[in-house]
Amino acid sequence: MNRPTRALPFDPTRVGREALPALPALLRGMPKAELHIHIEGSLEPELIFALAGRNGVTLPYASVDALRAAYAFTDLQSFLDIYYAGASVLLEEADFFDMAMAYFRRAAADRVVHAELFFDPQTHTERGVPVETVIRGLARARATAQQELGVSSELILCFLRHLSEDAAFQTLEQALPYREHFIGVGLDSSERGHPPEKFARVFARCRELGLRLVAHAGEEGPPAYVWSALDVLKVERIDHGVRSLEDPALVARLAAERMPLTVCPLSNVKLRVFDTMAQHSLAAMLDAGLCATVNSDDPAYFGGYLNQNFIETFEALPALGAAQAYRLARNSFEASFASAAQKQRWCDALDAHFAGV
Rank of each mutant, 00 (worst) to 15 (best):
M99W: 01
S63N: 12
R105K: 12
F79C: 10
A66C: 15
G150W: 11
Y103G: 01
Q77P: 03
D166V: 09
V134T: 11
Q147R: 14
L117V: 07
E116W: 08
A72E: 15
M101A: 12
R161D: 05
V112Y: 04
Y71L: 12
R68I: 00
I82R: 09
A168Y: 04
G56Y: 01
F73C: 08
Q170I: 06
D95M: 07
V112M: 11
R127Y: 05
A69P: 03
Y84S: 02
V131I: 15
D98R: 02
R105I: 13
T58L: 04
L149K: 10
G150A: 04
V134I: 15
F79L: 08
P130L: 13
G53S: 13
V129N: 08
G128H: 15
A141E: 07
Y71F: 15
I82T: 11
D65E: 14
E126R: 02
T74L: 03
T74K: 09
L67H: 03
E92W: 01
Y83H: 15
A85R: 14
Q77W: 13
L67Q: 07
I82K: 02
T123K: 07
V151T: 14
D110C: 13
A94C: 07
Y84H: 12
E132Y: 10
T123R: 11
L67S: 10
S88N: 06
E116N: 14
A115M: 04
T125C: 03
T58E: 09
E165H: 09
L163P: 00
I135Q: 03
G53R: 15
A52D: 02
L59Q: 05
A102Q: 06
V57A: 11
A141V: 03
A143P: 04
T133C: 03
A141M: 11
E93G: 04
V112L: 10
